[in-house]
Amino acid sequence: MTSGWGTPMLAEPPLLSVRGLTRIHGPGCPRCLDSTGDAAGRNDCPHCRSVVAIAGVDFDLWPGEILGIIGESGSGKSTVVRLLHLDDRPTQGSIRLRGGDGGCLELTELDGAARRRLRDTRLGIVYQSPHLGLNFAISAGGNIAERLLTAGERRFAAMRERALALLARTEIPRSRLDHRPAQFSGGMQQRLQIARALAPGPELLLLDEVTTGLDVSVQARILDLIMELQHELGVAMVAVTHDLGVARLLAQRTIVMRCGRIVEHGLTDQILEDPQHPYTQQLVMSAL
């Protein structure tokens, strides 16, 4: 929580510090970085044909904060999420996660087992496609139990209790506990993804276009739920979206990406009402 007036949250170190994060697909060459990005207007290197998915991405995330990342397809925002979720390794750069003991973990240096353990216990992710985030072969209750099992829970009664509490919290009727995700509506599948992601009590929740493609009323319900959960649990989130309205509702601060680079960052209302970069101005103008 914040302390005094002048130095709120600043006294507290960030939960997550990302520096110089770079991911190049392909062999890479010395001219890759200069030949791609915002000024070049492309993310594929004309000299070696490598794709610079992201380069030089820096940001901090404080505990309990929601940071928005906006940009169109190909801007690199989903690459940032994949790297944060340790689904991929950066070509360069650092991702430091602060632990409860005050120590910092350099996530890019972890071995395979440690990466899995971290993903199973301290990170959560909700994808645009429920097929990525859910196991469609097992029931809703099973989806939550599976995640609790990988996080180390072995007591059946505790798992059942936690699963029921999470379903209730995400507004999924208890009567649907034994139904498979395929029998759920799109909105309910997203809520089940949220329940599954939150099961082990992660410190960082990654949201990758979670309301894209849903009806507006269903979208509103999901966004409300996310904000309520953020308030109740204080979990920090990174929300990737191409929908400026979603960023406005969820995020206090927002990063704008284009061609794999951060072109602007600021308070979300400032980004939307006083965008500085030509690309952000275009994005805001085409949305309103």
Binding site: W5, P8, M9, Q252, R253, G266, L267
Partner: peptide, 13 residues
């Protein structure tokens, strides 16, 4: 001032 300081001022004052 930085963004977090602005957010804190908005929250409290």
């Amino acid at each position: 001032c930085d963004e977090h300081a602005v957010l804190a001022v908005r929250r409290h004052r």
